[in-house]
Structures are given as structure tokens and as C-alpha cells.
Nucleic acid binder design. Structure first.
Length: 678
RNA sequence: GGCGAGGUAGCUCAGUCGGUUAGAGCAGUGGAAUCAUAAUCCACGUGUCGGGGGUUCGAAUCCCUCUCUCGCUACCA
């Protein structure tokens, strides 16, 4: 099989704050899983990322803390780098855009465009804050809208009425940085002719999509931009912080971040090459005709990776001997929300990666996020779901399968792989699964369907448990140990396969499993039925996934700002709906427990002129005797149902206290039976 | 305001270039089993596929309309 040459990048995180779970779900975890899979498959792949360290927000953070921007970027670069590492991100390099080599690369692109006459200089008026000594980006100026009078309008646009205007029209402008009234000053900027590349980009996206099937959401975003028509974009800014414009007389001007950050992928690859002492290696990837470049991003970044970056690369290619490759696919994800709402640092909503990993290991988080990636639409992270995924799937299904197999191998086969003897039908079926699943999962990975791939991994694990159950080794070990040996042999092969196919998702645990197996991963397509030789000695096993208790999760839930907690949605019903429910007072005249059920009681209740049988799930809260003669509220027109073969003609209302004990609703002795409750 | 996305089982999500009885996991109920982290396995879903209208032999899937949520428009994946 041909080895592919693959270049993978994940969006460069902005070094102005810690990364949170949403970032992971968007651009990092899916890429890491893909890359780890590709490495096991044996493809030639490199994975590039780094910090994006320029732009106005960083300078503002720096001003607020009265430190230099370097302090900010150093802090968050290191913090995020460490968090990624702890999370198990397997970047080949995690670089940063403040490095000289990046400045040089970006300037080279800028100069090339300038020399070829692509950049156009235009003069315009911008607000200048004399106190802060800087030109103000549009969103840092606030004033009254000249059209509708809205008082929080921006310098060029009003959010309220949607009108666009020139900065000089804005009334009562205020700098959001210093609060002073800014002054209008003329400045000039260089513009990149994005419109010139619209046709090229439309063709490019069309072609890539028909060859490689781009995601629908990505295509939709692009379509929107094309429909509006691509316009020239200013690629310089009046700012001290950033990459200096490499032209004479351009003091105080830097290259706009969006125009250089994407080039960070290239400069980072250069550093990667240098670190390996192969300074030209980066060209094999970026300029290698057969390399496929996959850019993993979140949806907010689509325009930069499908339009601006490709346009820049094309602009280079048109004017140079060397040709860069363009993204073959941009599998952008939607967003991950947190407990039903958007992550918001200012409102304390959500959790940062480093904070999370202080509390729990990386693998359960990776698994939880991977099995609910926002591939098609926004999804949510819920603490309860995290707990459930960890306990019910990783611990109970995967962990327990491994554990029960190892214990068997230890107890009955001296910690060695027993021989595989005559095969039954279920043996063959399991062995077949071991060959089918890795291929099925590979196929899904190749199409960036990470979430489905993860589902299939757990499905194989379910099959494994079923195989174990159906084979009943605890029976065969006594009757015919060779049959039992066959079962355990196959279970161990299964564990090997699971360790490998799960390794992109839960790399830390996978490593432990391989160590328990006293073995190592092999090429993806060689996994299956014969990776462990008969007689192979196993190591000691350990519990892989600890259960997470309710109270541990509750602590996290309690930490959330209560004002932000999503109120339970109340489904309103009409009075008409309510009046359909006939509640009546009934007296319990007899009660007995039901055989083989530990929750149900069989009750006879008396209404006005009738006696009914009701089966109630209150046996754990009441003994039959203490119910006799209680006057309770029942739903009298509930459709009858059979429970445990007994007819139940109604339902008794009860409430649960904080220990889980039920209390039936009772009324005074002087209320007549059969009375309607209203 | 404009543009876009979404509203599918109690919950989290698949599916849909129109076509047999609309799916998975979790939760729930019942059963089997007891090797195992009380862990596993089996069975069980009458869901107006957001509301209404239309096209069609046939729509969750196409069109129109209404409604709710969210995003983009404005350098946080």
C-alpha cells in the first residue's frame, strides 16, 4: 500500500488566555486523533501548531497589567503548551509567531506581494487615542450612531440599525481603552486584492470538494463569502506590537495578524526542520506536489483557511518558481458548548484545560470529547455525561473486559497466552470482528468521521464482552480447559486490537494496556488475530479507569455560577391538557408484595363505588402493612397497564425525599373517598 | 438589519441529493448469568422527525410560511 505524505495543522491558539475544552473539541483533539491514527498506519505525517502572539487584544491585556506584551505571550504560550502536552497532543512542533524566523517568513511574503504590485496603498481616516498613543481598531471606539442615535455604536458601523458610515460621522466618540475622546488622523494602509482571487478560489474549492468531499458547513461559509463578493482587505495596522512592515517609511506599522498568523504554519515547519538538522525538509511538505495538507480548525476560522490563506499561497505561486500546496481539506468543526451555554471566560462559564486536568486524567476527557465532537452542529459538554462516559463505557465496558480477561489468564493460565484450539462459530465471529473493525475504523478516520470511529471502537468492545459471556470460560475451565484456553487466547488478541485502535483516542491508557500485554503496537492494518504468540508472557494487570463518584461531579456542578445555570425548561400545558388528568382520593384497603419484584407492591384501593388494583413502585419505602387505610391521591384515568403480569389501573402520587425514600401524598381522614382533586 | 446553521425518542447525537416498519449511545423496565471495577449479556421505543401550507403516487428528506435557539456579519477553536 502506498504511503501518503501528509501535513496537518491545527489553528494557532491565541496567546491571550488559557485554552478551554471548546478549543480542544474544535481543532485539536480531532486532529490529534487523526494524526495518531495516520502514524500507526505508517503514513509520512507531520503535525504542526503553535501560538498566535500578535494583535491588539494582547497589547490591551499587557496595558491592563502594566507589563510588556512579551510577558503575556510568554505566559500563555507556556501555559497552553503545557496544557496541550498534558492532554496528550502529539504535535511534532508547537512553535510561536513571535520567533524571528516567523517574522522573516511573513515579511518575505509581504515583500513578494509588494514587489509584484499586488498591494495597493490607500489613505483613510482613523481614530487616534492620544492618551494611549495608538490608533484604535474599530471595535475599541464607541459613540452615538449618526443614523439612529444608538449610543454604543462602533466607529464604522452601528449594531443596532446596521448602518455603515465613515468614522468622522460618529457622534461623541470615546476610546474604550482610555475613555478619552479620540482624534481623527489620516493614515495609510496596504490592501491585499482578495477580489482578484475570487474566481480562482471558487474553482479551487469546487475542485477540492468534488475530489475530496468537503464538509457541508465549510462549503456554506465559503458560499456566503463568495456571494457577498471578496473585497480588498487592509493587511497592515498602526501598532507597535507585531511584525514590522518591511518597507521604508513604515514606522509604527505592522502586518495585520490574520495576514501573518496562518503563515505561522510554514515558519513552524521550518523550525521543525531545523531542529532535525534538515533545514530544507519543510519544503518536502509545503512544496511537495504529492503532499496532502489538512487544516483542522473551528468554524470561526473557516474564512482564513479556505479563502485568505489559499489566496496568499496562490499569490505567491503565481509570482515565484517555488509553489506551495493549498489545503486539500479543511474539516472545520462547529463549537462545543458547556452545560448548555457558550463558554465565557468573563462570566466564569466553562473550564480551562489545565484546570480540568488537575482534577481528572486526560483519557476520559479525550474519550468524552471525541465521542461527542461538534462535527455537524454545536454540541454540549455536560459533567454528568463525562461521568457516565467514564464509568459506563471506559470503566465498565472496556476496562472491565480487559480486567476479567487478565484475571482469567492469571488464575488459570499462569499469565501466559494459552493456545488456540478448535474454533467454534462464535470464536470465528470474534476473530472476524478483529479484522473487520480496524478497517472500518480506518475508513471513517480517512473521512474525518472521528465521532463515528470512536463509536465503532466501543461497539467492538461490546462485542468482546458478549463473546466472553457467550463463551462462558468459567464453565469451560472446569469441563474442558482447551476450550477455555481458546476463549482466553482470543480475548487477549482482542485486547491487543483494542489497545491499538483506541490508542489515538486514549493514548495514555493504550500505553498501559500494551505494557500489561508485554507487547507493542504494530502497523494499523496488521492488527487482528495473531499479534500475540502462544506462550507469550503477560505482565501484571492494573485497573485502567477509576469510577468517578457522584459527589466528585457534584462539586464541579456546584462551582458553576448559579445565575448562569440553565433553568430547567418548563413545558407549559394548557388548562385543557391539565383537565384531562382525573385525580381522585382513594383509600388503600389491602397491600401485598409481589413475588420476584423488590420494588412493586400490589394494592387494592377503594373509590366511591369501585375497588381497583394498582401496582405501585413503593416497596422500598413502605411495608404493605403501613399502607393500609391511608387515604391517598391517585390518577384515576390512567390507561391500565400490566406490570409483572398484574393489572394496574391507576397510579399513586408520591414525592421523593433527599434520601430517595418515597412519601405517598395523603389527605385528612375526613375527606370522602372518590373526591376529585382540583 | 443582512447572511447562515440548527430545532429528530426522557437526555446527548446520527440519518435525509424523496421510497420498505426513522436509528445509536445513555437513562428506564424486565430477564439471563456470576469470570470481572455490582462490572456483563439479552429483550422492550404509538418519536404529530419545531408548527402550518404546498409539490409528489409517496416528504423527516424538496418549496413556501410561521416560530424558537444559536452563530456569523465585528482578529476568542
Amino acid at each position: 500500500m502506498n504511503k501518503e505524505k501528509v501535513l496537518v495543522t491545527s489553528a494557532l491558539p491565541y496567546a491571550n488566555g488559557p485554552i478551554h475544552l471548546g478549543h480542544l473539541s474544535g481543532a485539536y483533539l480531532p486532529a490529534d486523533i487523526y494524526v495518531r491514527y495516520k502514524r500507526l498506519k505508517g503514513d509520512d505525517i507531520i503535525y504542526i501548531c503553535g501560538s498566535d502572539e500578535h494583535g491588539v487584544p494582547i497589547t490591551i491585556s499587557a496595558d491592563k497589567e502594566k507589563v510588556s506584551p512579551n510577558v503575556i505571550i510568554d505566559r500563555y504560550h507556556e501555559k497552553n503548551k503545557a496544557a496541550f502536552e498534558k492532554f496528550g497532543m502529539s504535535f511534532d512542533i508547537y512553535s510561536r509567531t513571535s520567533l524571528p524566523i516567523h517574522h522573516k517568513t511573513a515579511q518575505e511574503f509581504f515583500k513578494k506581494f509588494h514587489e509584484n504590485g499586488l498591494l495597493v496603498e490607500k489613505k483613510s481616516m482613523h481614530f487616534y487615542d492620544n492618551k494611549a498613543n495608538m490608533f484604535l481598531p474599530d471595535r475599541y471606539v464607541e459613540g452615538t450612531c449618526p443614523r439612529c442615535g444608538y449610543e454604543e455604536a462602533r466607529s464604522d458601523e452601528c449594531e443596532k440599525c446596521g448602518s455603515l458610515y465613515e468614522p468622522q460621522e460618529l457622534l461623541n466618540p470615546k476610546s474604550k481603552i482610555s475613555g478619552d475622546t479620540p482624534e481623527l488622523k489620516e493614515t495609510s494602509h496596504w490592501y491585499f486584492p482578495l477580489g482578484k482571487y475570487q474566481k480562482f478560489l471558487e474553482d479551487y474549492i469546487q475542485e477540492m470538494n468534488s475530489n475530496y468531499g468537503w464538509k457541508d458547513n465549510v462549503l456554506q461559509y465559503c458560499k456566503g463569502w463568495f456571494k457577498d463578493g471578496l473585497k480588498d482587505r487592509a493587511v497592515t495596522r498602526d501598532l507597535d506590537w507585531g511584525i514590522k512592515v518591511p518597507l521604508p517609511n513604515s514606522e509604527g506599522k505592522v502586518i495585520y495578524v490574520w495576514f501573518e498568523a496562518v503563515l505561522g504554519y510554514i515558519s513552524a515547519t521550518k523550525i521543525f526542520s531545523e531542529n532535525l538538522n534538515k533545514p530544507d525538509l519543510w519544503k518536502d511538505y509545503w512544496q511537495g506536489k504529492d503532499t496532502k495538507y489538512i487544516a483542522f480548525i473551528g468554524k470561526d476560522n473557516v474564512v482564513f483557511h479556505t479563502i485568505i490563506f489559499p489566496a496568499m499561497l496562490q499569490a505567491w505561486n503565481e509570482n515565484s518558481e517555488t509553489k506551495f500546496i493549498l489545503p486539500q481539506n479543511v474539516p472545520a468543526n462547529e463549537f462545543l458548548n458547556f452545560e448548555g451555554k457558550k463558554f465565557s471566560k468573563s462570566r466564569g462559564w466553562g473550564i480551562d484545560v489545565d484546570e480540568f486536568l488537575e482534577l481528572f486524567p486526560a483519557d476520559p476527557l479525550r474519550y468524552t470529547l471525541a465521542s461527542n465532537l461538534p462535527e455537524n452542529k454545536d454540541t454540549d459538554f455536560y459533567w454528568k455525561e463525562f461521568q457516565a462516559k467514564n464509568n459506563n463505557e471506559l470503566a465498565d465496558i472496556l476496562g472491565n473486559f480487559i480486567n476479567r480477561t487478565f484475571i482469567f489468564a492469571g488464575k488459570h493460565f499462569n499469565n501466559e497466552v494459552p493456545s488456540r484450539n478448535e474454533l467454534s462459530e462464535i470464536d470465528n465471529k470474534m476473530l472476524n470482528d478483529l479484522q473487520v473493525y480496524p478497517r472500518k475504523i480506518a475508513e471513517l478516520f480517512e473521512n474525518y468521521k472521528i465521532k463515528d470511529a470512536v463509536l465503532e471502537m466501543m461497539n467492538l468492545t461490546r462485542n468482546a464482552n458478549k463473546y466472553f459471556n457467550d463463551s462462558e470460560p468459567w464453565v469451560t475451565v472446569k469441563k474442558d480447559k482447551s476450550i477455555c484456553g481458546t476463549t482466553i487466547n482470543i480475548c487477549l488478541q482482542t485486547i491487543y486490537t483494542l489497545a491499538e485502535i483506541f490508542s489515538p483516542v486514549i493514548p495514555f491508557s493504550s500505553k498501559k494496556i500494551f505494557s500489561m500485554l508485554n507487547s507493542e503496537p504494530t502497523e494499523w492494518l496488521s492488527i487482528g488475530i495473531n499479534n500475540l504468540k502462544v506462550g507469550h508472557k503477560l505482565n501484571k494487570s492494573e485497573i485502567l479507569f477509576k469510577k468517578i463518584e457522584d459527589d466528585v461531579i457534584q462539586v464541579q456542578l456546584d462551582k458553576l455560577p448559579s445565575s448562569e445555570i440553565v433553568k430547567e425548561k418548563i413545558h407549559e400545558i394548557s388548562f385543557e391538557d391539565f383537565s384531562k388528568i382525573k385525580l381522585k382520593i382513594a383509600k388503600i384497603v389491602s397491600a401485598e408484595s409481589i413475588k420476584k419484584s423488590n420494588k412493586l407492591l400490589k394494592l387494592k384501593v377503594e373509590l366511591k363505588n369501585e375497588t381497583r388494583q394498582i401496582i405501585a413502585g413503593i416497596a422500598q419505602s413502605y411495608s404493605p402493612e403501613e399502607l393500609i387505610n391511608k387515604k391517598v391521591v391517585i390518577v384515576s384515568n390512567l390507561k391500565p397497564a400490566k406490570l409483572f403480569g398484574e393489572l394496574s389501573e391507576g397510579m399513586i402520587l408520591a414525592v421523593e425525599n433527599n434520601t430517595g425514600k418515597l412519601n405517598v401524598l395523603e389527605v385528612d381522614e375526613n375527606i370522602a373517598i372518590g373526591t376529585d382533586v382540583r
